[in-house]
Simulated assay, not measured.
Amino acid sequence: MTELFLAHRLDLVRLAFLLAGDQETAEDVVQDAFAAVYRRWSRLAEREKVLPYLRAAVINGCRMVHRRRSVARRFRGDREVPFWSAEAAVLLGESRREVFLAVRALPRRQREALVLRYYLDLSEAEIAEVMGVSRGTVKSTASRALRALAATLQEER
Rank of each mutant, 00 (worst) to 15 (best):
D32F: 02
A33G: 11
A33I: 03
A33E: 06
F34L: 05
A35Y: 02
A36I: 02
V37N: 06
Y38P: 00
Y38M: 13
Y38I: 07
R40W: 03
W41E: 10
S42I: 04
S42M: 07
R43I: 02
R43V: 05
R43M: 11
E48I: 05
E48D: 15
E48N: 12
K49N: 12
K49Q: 13
K49G: 13
L51K: 03
P52M: 04
L54S: 03
R55Q: 13
R55A: 05
R55T: 02
A56F: 00
A56Q: 13
A56P: 05
A56Y: 00
A57C: 07
A57I: 01
A57S: 15
V58G: 03
V58T: 03
V58N: 08
I59D: 05
N60M: 08
G61H: 02
C62E: 02
V65R: 06
R67D: 08
R67L: 12
R68C: 04
R68I: 05
R68V: 03
R68G: 00
R69G: 09
R69T: 00
S70G: 15
V71Q: 04
V71G: 00
V71W: 00
A72G: 04
A72Y: 04
R73S: 14
R74H: 09
R74Q: 13
G77H: 06
G77V: 00
G77Q: 07
G77D: 04
D78C: 03
D78Q: 12
D78H: 12
R79I: 12
R79M: 11
E80C: 08
E80G: 03
V81R: 15
P82V: 04
W84L: 15
W84M: 15
S85W: 02
A86L: 15
A86W: 10
E87T: 11
E87C: 02
E87K: 11
E87H: 10
A88M: 14
A88Y: 07
A88W: 05
A89M: 14
V90M: 08
V90E: 14
L91G: 01
L92E: 09
G93L: 12
E94Y: 09
E94A: 12
E94C: 03
E94N: 06
S95Q: 14
S95V: 13
E98S: 11
E98L: 13
V99W: 09
F100R: 07
L101P: 06
A102R: 06
V103I: 14
V103S: 06
R104I: 02
A105I: 03
L106C: 09
L106Q: 07
L106Y: 08
